[in-house]
Write a protein that binds this DNA or RNA. Structure first.
Lengths: 318, 318
DNA sequence: CGGAGTTGAGTTACCGGTAACGTAGGTCTA
DNA sequence: TAGACCTACGTTACCGGTAACTCAACTCCG
């Protein structure tokens, strides 16, 4: 029996008799045969079922949610996630893009809209479906899914102004996921400026945006600037660190200081008060990115720009 | 110029003149040529630089740390992580194993020691380096990296007994990562039995092991069993949920109730007290697994069983 | 200066599938 | 019953690299 016949049976292409099918399947069973997908790809100059997904790091909970959304969707359409952690370095991203492209992925999902010139060139010449996520890119290389971080920062600033605050603080880190946090800070600063408030101090720690940096960042900011009235944090982890710092120091929230976070984490559900934050559907970003990518992969069209938006959670920490 | 000459130059195999090298590299530059790694693999019947990594889910923070440890190490040795989320289902794992093996990975890292019979058969016949992580397997298919969860549960039970507790509770979920949590519970129960205590109630919620299930699980357990003296939780997330429940209900810790978690999460660093927990170096598990795998991939030998151990953190919640 | 060794390059075959085409034998219809 | 058509299967070539081999030209040395 020729290998062509076996190939036809295995792909259920038709053009073979039931007797042949049974014979082929019996052999498959007997040999424990697993098709070599590498050869299939190679033969047709097709792409694999891999989708390269780059994220800045796994330590940040928001990205694990995004990644989960992506992978769940991909798996249900018989695709696999190839992980790339860029450590917030565009150079790392470039290296990873080059490597992963040489494996003929079906598509790519990149976190952030900033890439090195060579990375952009590689992506363009690879000519495969591509989604840039997280920070919405109105003129993406191919597609973009995310939200406008500047606007979300602006809205938070305006909300805090409406609460009567006049002296504002900010605590974030230089570990800035795809520059989105910087966009939020810029929006926040702009809103304060527009509203006649004063951004008295913005702290940029050289650390990861986690609980403890929020804790000691608050200490630093308050000791250098005791009359700041409200602090906007890079994310909820840092804000929760701040809340615990205040509890430890008997600083009352919101009477003595206002606290606002960003991103709404699951831990919010057990806190004794509602943290003022910005709700973002991280899982949805991942799912939508994967959906659009899969559409393009299968030859359909998908919207170039998808804004998942955000929702301000007033909370009671301001 | 023959493609063989170009191949030699690109692999820096030697056997070519400087003049030829320059000419080849100029062409590479001009064409924006990227080698097709698929063809390389195919040609030599080699494996790819992919390493399949299966984890139960990404929602559980401990696994993201393990994954981060794995990926960092793999990347530094020019390998890539292909993600597999098994959703705690062995059937899902089996499907994923079959798919990922057809792509000729360099090796596999699987979370948990339980697999379907067919999965084991596939793994054996694939005959590639394999590490089973998390729950230490003293007779692994190939290699194992992790810790003895039963022992860690036993130690926690013994510790709590030594604190004078007599009526014990447990709150966990059926969302049991690779059955490790069940091993911990079994160890805990055994210690209590050996020490003459009483495990009055063990609650197994049909939920994810997160903050909120810890919150309402505590409520459930305390309402059905008000005189339980100390509760051991499946993980720190749940324990922290419990702490917040107690704070909300003015139940004093540790005077009215003792709380013990497992796994030590970063949030512990900002809590107003030290949570009694079991410290496990998740990142180390990932790194060690990747290291051993890479050793085997490169043809060296690696230890079959690596115990990363655990350390009880007494804390002040008991 | 002839033969052996070295260097730089080309030629051929192959990996495991699949597209495209070929063909034997049967069926159907005018 | 001849020719058209279909069905089930086989044959050939190819994807893009690389191993293994060949070979021409040059170098070296007794």
């Amino acid at each position: 029996m020729s290998k062509m016949t076996a190939s036809r049976v295995l792909r259920e292409e038709g053009g073979y008799s039931e007797k042949t099918r049974v014979k082929v399947m019996a052999e498959v069973e007997r040999l424990g045969y697993l098709p070599n997908r590498i050869a299939t790809v190679f033969s047709g100059d097709r792409s694999t079922t891999f989708v390269g997904v780059s994220i800045p790091d796994l330590g940040n909970e928001v990205f694990t949610h995004v990644l989960e959304g992506i992978d769940r969707k991909l798996v249900s359409f018989n695709h696999q996630t190839v992980l790339g952690m860029t450590q917030h370095e565009l150079g790392e991203e470039e290296n990873w893009i080059e490597t992963v492209l040489s494996w003929k992925p079906a598509g790519l999902i990149l976190t952030g809209r900033a890439h090195t010139p060579r990375a952009v060139q590689l992506l363009r010449s690879a000519n495969i479906p591509l989604v840039e996520i997280w920070d919405l890119n109105s003129s993406p290389i191919d597609m973009s899914v995310g939200l406008n971080h500047f606007d979300s920062g602006y809205d938070m600033g305006r909300f805090l102004l409406s609460k009567g605050y006049a002296r504002f603080g900010y605590v974030g880190t230089s570990h800035d996921a795809a520059n989105a946090a910087t966009s939020r800070l810029n929006g926040y600063a702009k809103a304060i400026e527009d509203g006649g408030g004063k951004l008295t101090r913005q702290l940029c720690l050289n650390d990861i945006p986690g609980f403890y940096p929020g804790f000691y960042g608050t200490e630093q900011l308050l000791s250098s600037d005791p009359d700041v009235e409200v602090i906007f944090f890079q994310n909820d982890n840092m804000a929760i660190g701040a809340v615990h710092f205040c509890q430890a120091q008997n600083i009352r929230i919101p009477e003595d200081i206002g606290i606002a976070g960003w991103g709404e984490l699951p831990i919010a559900s057990v806190l004794p008060y509602r943290l003022t934050t910005m709700q973002v559907n991280h899982l949805r970003i991942g799912q939508l990115a994967a959906e659009n990518l899969l559409l393009k992969i299968s030859g359909d069209t998908a919207s170039a720009v998808s804004d998942v938006g955000f929702r301000l959670v007033p909370g009671d920490t301001v």
